[in-house]
Design a protein around this nucleic acid. Structure first.
Lengths: 121, 121
DNA sequence: GCGTTAGTTCGGGAATATGGAACTATTGAA
DNA sequence: TTCAATAGTTCCATATTCCCGAACTAACGC
């Protein structure tokens, strides 16, 4: 278990941020963290949804978010605390996070993604 | 060669848009299209950069952008015209594209998107 | 028809993502 | 201090996606 990697503000790239948030699962996780300011643990999230996300996948999702600079993870005893780095990101890329979160909030049904998927099948 | 798939405005998803623009190559292509309003052909782009992107890859990039709703492709005779659907996307997800393009512009001296960001402002 | 131009699709290897099983780190209790 | 429980990480095999050369297709002009 090596130490966590947290990029500095100027190491953040739009590329990594977009990639991290392009996954709705991760966007959801990030939204929850950003909403709460701090969220504890993977297991907490794992069972809140309808689908149970395996904890290894959760761990990966957290890593991607972390390495994109979206969250900061701290180990407190046996558990984990994740904080959204909104302010830092907003300082670097003003308006980006708000716009993305707004977009997700606005989007409800993803019928088209399914249609395309079916077409390519 | 089946007909192109173009999502309607309400079929667009943040997910697809973010995924499409998470690739800097595609972001660059989109920026150029958005900047010019219309760009002709894949080959045009292929040799403008330092690295020559193979046309099959270009074709895929265009498809991803198209199916995310970012561009509209029309075949005019033997060649192709691609238009940015900025207005439509901005109507659906206000501020999203500007924020993303700004972020890319801000990042590591990538001047390319600056003009575009300015244009959308 | 034939050749040329512009782009798409096919196919297979590379890269990335998913998730179960095993492992690690920390705490609390016996 | 040893053991069990909890919380996450890492390993690894499978699955999916991406990349790009080669083959194919569509639209011209001759």
């Amino acid at each position: 278990m090596r130490a966590f990697v947290h990029p500095t503000v100027d190491q953040m790239t739009p590329q990594a941020i977009l990639h991290a948030l392009a996954d709705p699962e991760r966007a959801k996780i990030y939204a929850e963290i950003a909403g709460l300011g701090c969220i504890q643990g993977c297991a907490t999230l794992a069972d809140t949804g309808e689908r149970v996300i395996p904890k290894s996948s959760l761990s990966q999702h957290f890593r991607v978010l972390r390495e994109a600079g979206l969250i900061r993870s701290e180990r407190h005893g046996v558990e984990m605390r994740n904080y959204a780095r909104c302010a830092e990101i907003d300082a670097r890329f003003p308006g980006l996070l708000v716009a993305i979160m707004r977009a997700y909030a606005q989007n409800s049904g993803q019928e088209f993604a399914e249609a395309v998927a079916a077409k390519h099948a």
